[in-house]
């Protein structure tokens, strides 16, 4: 007579039933919508690298603070520069900060996290204590600290923002890997006498990437936000760059006379962030059914 502990209960929740029957395929529309918008913005940003209606750095004293018109759809700034051209020319910077920072944290955080999962000795402990320490600084302070001491630049902003998310990815990838190491299929690999490299490549990584990618997708929003905040504080790309956060910061003095100077880059930044956020949530719904 079996009292099999694992007897599957025919649970009532229509949610779980649906998931059991259909598998998880949520978030498709969010992914399409957000991803589509993101691709469009990226294309515009790439075009902006080569072509803008006006020279984004050319001064035109007679056109200072001109209101939006057909010739200058987003108006001009205090030096008479075309705001639309500047927004276009700066588009790639926000994308670069957001995705660049994510790549930095992926490149540093995931290997360190996996190492911490595999190494039960002092190295693993050291990595985790280091991550604990970095996480005990409020996110913006770590960025401020790094950027305050040395002259700011785009690369440093990317690095600073990326470093903020390294400990989060260290913790996540370690937790995911530790969970997988307990799985029976990893035990089966060990029973074949597979080495750590083979287990990592064949058993762990193929199963670990979905939660890591989901986390990254959601973090890109915060990375872009943090990067823009640092730029806004003057700790990102320096003038005459037209990074959007920087443009908004420069517009502050002229807000009363020329609100378009801040609104144009601000709204573009919002559009980018919403697109990234929607795409990230879509990705999560698609890959991680437990958070539907």
């Amino acid at each position: 007579m079996s009292t099999g502990g694992g007897a599957v209960l025919d649970t009532p929740g229509a949610d779980s039933l649906r998931r059991r029957i259909l598998g998880s395929r949520g978030g498709t529309s969010a992914l399409l919508f957000g991803g589509g918008a993101l691709v469009a913005i990226a294309i515009i940003a790439i075009i902006g690298l080569w072509y803008t209606p006006y020279d984004p750095t050319a001064f035109a004293v007679r056109l200072r603070l001109a209101a939006p018109s057909l010739a200058h759809p987003f108006g001009t700034d205090e030096f008479g520069r075309d705001v639309m051209s500047r927004v276009l020319a700066g588009a790639h910077l926000s994308l670069a900060i957001g995705f660049g920072a994510m790549l930095v944290s992926l490149a540093l955080g995931v290997p360190l996290g996996l190492l911490a999962a595999f190494d039960r000795g002092w190295l693993g402990v050291a990595i985790m204590r280091g991550a604990d320490l970095m996480i005990s600084l409020p996110p913006i302070l770590l960025g401020l600290l790094i950027l305050a001491v040395t002259p700011p630049s785009l690369g440093k902003t990317i690095l600073a923002v990326g470093l903020v998310y390294v400990p989060i990815l260290v913790r996540l990838s370690r937790a995911v890997a530790l969970g997988l190491l307990e799985e029976d299929f990893v035990q089966a690999a060990r029973a074949r006498g597979e080495g750590a490299a083979s287990i990592l490549a064949r058993e762990i990584l193929p199963n670990a990437w979905p939660p890591i990618i989901v986390e990254c997708g959601l973090r890109v929003t915060f990375a872009i936000l943090l990067g823009a905040s640092l730029s806004f504080l003057g700790l990102g790309p320096q003038p005459p760059s037209s990074e959007w956060g920087l443009m908004i910061a420069e517009s502050r003095e002229f807000l009363a006379q020329a609100p378009w100077m801040g609104l144009a880059p601000g709204l573009c930044l919002c559009a980018l962030l919403v697109a990234v956020n929607v795409a990230g949530e879509g990705l999560r719904a698609r890959l991680d059914p437990s958070h539907a």
Partner: peptide, 18 residues
């Protein structure tokens, strides 16, 4: 929530000031 999480606070700030 989708929108509000994504909008940077300094943008809200200048909007509010304007």
């Amino acid at each position: 929530q989708f929108v509000f999480i994504a909008v940077p606070d300094f943008f809200w700030a200048i909007l509010a000031v304007v």
